[in-house]
Design a protein around this nucleic acid. Structure first.
Length: 572
RNA sequence: CGGGGCGUGGCGCAGUCUGGUAGCGCACCUGCUUUGGGAGCAGGGAGUCGGAGGUUCGAAUCCUCUCGCCCCGACCA
């Protein structure tokens, strides 16, 4: 593509509204333009990158035996009423009416549609398993869209759904796609982790997220430094490590006045005691499954956070929330900030870490007062469990390694759905014994635009984007330093044709602007290889080759250019 | 949903407090010079100041309403 003819509006300054690098660079490099909050148009360069991601995804999905379908964006309410999600999905689902006042939505996901498609056709176990996928636009009316393509309202997603006669078969397929996803993100040239994750509101029994590692990621991920365990911190289990110390040599409890010192930081600073030696006490209001309410206390080391999901699971609760101030005072006798486990009449749960605190500090359940020399087992007896949010240095639950903490961008998510949709929507088949059973389902998603954005978050410098070769909009970028110089243009034109004939995608900057201007644009756009053609090197039959990802420019004989580029971008 | 902020040429902003008839940088067009890291000079085009209503001799500026966009928070002791 000749730059003089390409719709590629690059920007020197970045629009004020862009917050994260990928968003800024996509705007500056002329890949996207905003149409409304969380809604973007893709410009030619954006389309090229998107197609690269889609191509890899499509290829690996097909290879894994999945078949491509396309489902509608606008879906009638009936299907959602059947699954129960018309009411459950809430405001994230954009609803609309047609001229006959019939209700529809812009599909935020397609479980209902695919289940409907399959239930109409699949009758027998002989037709299973089946894996169908699509690459389609979805709409979720996010509370707060942000970060460009990273968290838009309208976005392109590859979603796949598999259908099985048996659990074993479903799990086998789940493993297959896990492998396929690993191939996909490897081929995209991204550093990523497949992590154990919470299944979330979509439901199901287990799930993995694919996280592209980048400091700007919205999610926190722990991974073991010595085995391959990795998990979203929301999910991560922690291995037991703290060993209980002997209780004997701890001095007696002592009250200390701590006027106005409520937070962990304040108490820690006031008493000159490490945050880790403080015992944080949270009072939670728990909604049990049978709708009864109960209050519980949760203890954590002062420097750690509670993982609410772990507590919910431990108690088998329906939901829970922090107790209101009035409830805290009624139950403990003190306002929030001065609460402690000693003498509490409600059930007390503690994270394992608390067992390691000897001679700790807690609230005294008395205004402006804390207790010193508190010891678990002597002064209070909690039920211990793994309750804290995992962090760096915590023990791995699978081996004796420890966690490191990284940030990640969720680009893929796979779930085992089970029979949630097939049961509610009557998608059944007849097994070998002629018995009717609900189909067992799994679903598998990949955010296409988000993957491109994540690639930028992970691969950029001050000058702009540094595309991993497989996602790059072009393989190489020819810069003709001076278009008025005839020898230069002769070589540039010839190379442009030759490289294209050899199957390379070539961007040719033939604009009448100064060299520096072209170099800046080239760095911004981030094509892997730049070929600089100028009068002084052309005389000796060579041109300059420079890789976007570091490295010095080097002279290459004109006849060797194609081969060199193919070596770098890994084609041919 | 709660809190905060912003809408002024394509982009980034000043001007608003203290009303007087719109300005700067980038981009764009023309010419000359320049030509390896976002050139210089000269000339030029482009804005119903988000929209509606009001106050006033006069409104980008003050008041009311409205629309749009952005940020922070939504499990914190």
């Amino acid at each position: 593509m000749r730059l003089t003819r390409m719709f590629l509006p690059t920007l020197k300054e970045s629009p004020a509204t862009a917050e994260v690098v990928s968003h800024k660079l996509m705007l500056r490099a002329g890949m996207i333009r905003k149409v409304a909050a969380g809604i973007y148009s893709l410009l030619p360069l954006g389309v090229r990158v998107t197609r690269k991601v889609e191509g890899i995804v499509r290829d690996e999905m097909n290879r894994a035996g999945a078949q491509e379908v396309v489902m509608p964006v606008v879906v009638p309410s009936e299907l959602w009423l059947e699954s129960g999600r018309w009411d459950d999905y809430g405001k994230e689902m954009l609803r609309l009416k047609d001229r006959g006042d019939r209700e529809f939505c812009m599909a935020p996901t397609h479980e209902e549609v695919i289940t409907d498609m399959v239930r109409g056709e699949v009758r027998s176990y002989k037709q299973l398993p089946l894996n169908l996928y699509q690459i389609q636009t979805k709409f979720r009316d996010e509370i707060r869209p942000r970060f460009g393509l990273m968290r838009g309202r309208e976005f392109v997603m590859k979603d796949a759904y598999s259908f099985h006669a048996t659990e074993e078969c479903a799990e086998r397929e789940y493993r297959e796609i896990l492998k396929a996803y690993t191939n996909i993100f490897k081929r995209c040239g991204l550093e990523f982790r497949a992590v154990e994750a919470e299944a979330g509101p979509i439901g199901g029994s287990f799930s993995h997220e694919f996280m592209v590692l980048a400091d700007t990621g919205e999610d926190a991920v722990v991974s073991c430094t010595s085995c391959d365990y990795a998990a979203n911190v929301e999910r991560a289990e922690i291995g037991a490590s703290e060993v209980a110390a002997a209780v004997v040599d701890i001095p007696a409890l002592e009250k200390v006045s701590t006027p106005g010192q409520k937070t962990i930081e304040e108490v820690s600073g006031f008493l000159k005691i490490e945050q880790a030696s403080l015992i944080k006490t949270l009072i939670y209001k728990v909604q049990k499954q049978d709708k009864k309410e109960e209050f519980v206390a949760v203890l954590l080391c002062g420097d750690r956070e509670l993982n609410v999901v772990k507590l919910v699971r431990l108690l088998g609760a329906g939901s829970m929330e922090l107790a209101e101030d009035v409830d805290v005072e009624r139950i403990t006798g003190a306002p929030a900030g001065f609460v402690g486990p000693v003498g509490l009449k409600i059930p007390v749960y503690a994270d394992w870490g608390v067992d390691g605190i000897r001679g700790g500090v807690t609230g005294a359940n008395e205004l402006n007062t804390h207790l010193l020399n508190v010891a678990s087992g002597r002064d209070f007896t909690p039920s211990y469990a793994d309750l804290r949010l995992a962090g760096a240095g915590d023990a791995c639950p699978r081996c004796d390694g420890v966690f490191e903490l990284r940030r990640g961008i969720e680009v893929g998510h796979i779930f085992k759905l089970g029979t949630k949709y097939s049961e509610s929507m009557g998608a059944t088949f007849l097994d070998e014994n002629g018995r009717e059973k609900p189909l067992i389902m799994c679903c598998y998603g990949i955010g296409i635009g988000r993957t491109a954005a994540a690639a930028i978050e992970q691969n950029h410098d001050d000058g702009g984007i540094i595309w991993p070769a497989p996602l790059a909009p072009f393989d190489c970028h020819i810069v003709a330093v001076n278009i008025k110089d005839e020898p230069t243009m002769k070589v540039a034109d010839a190379l442009y044709s030759e490289l294209q004939e050899k199957g390379l995608e070539v961007l040719f900057d033939d604009r009448k602007v100064r060299a520096g201007f072209k170099f800046k644009d080239a760095d911004l756009i981030g094509v892997p290889v730049r070929i600089t053609i100028s009068a002084n090197t052309v005389v000796e039959g060579s041109v300059e080759l420079k890789e976007r990802r570091g490295g010095e420019a080097r002279l290459v004989k004109i006849e060797d250019v194609a081969e060199e580029i193919q070596k770098i971008v890994g084609e041919g």
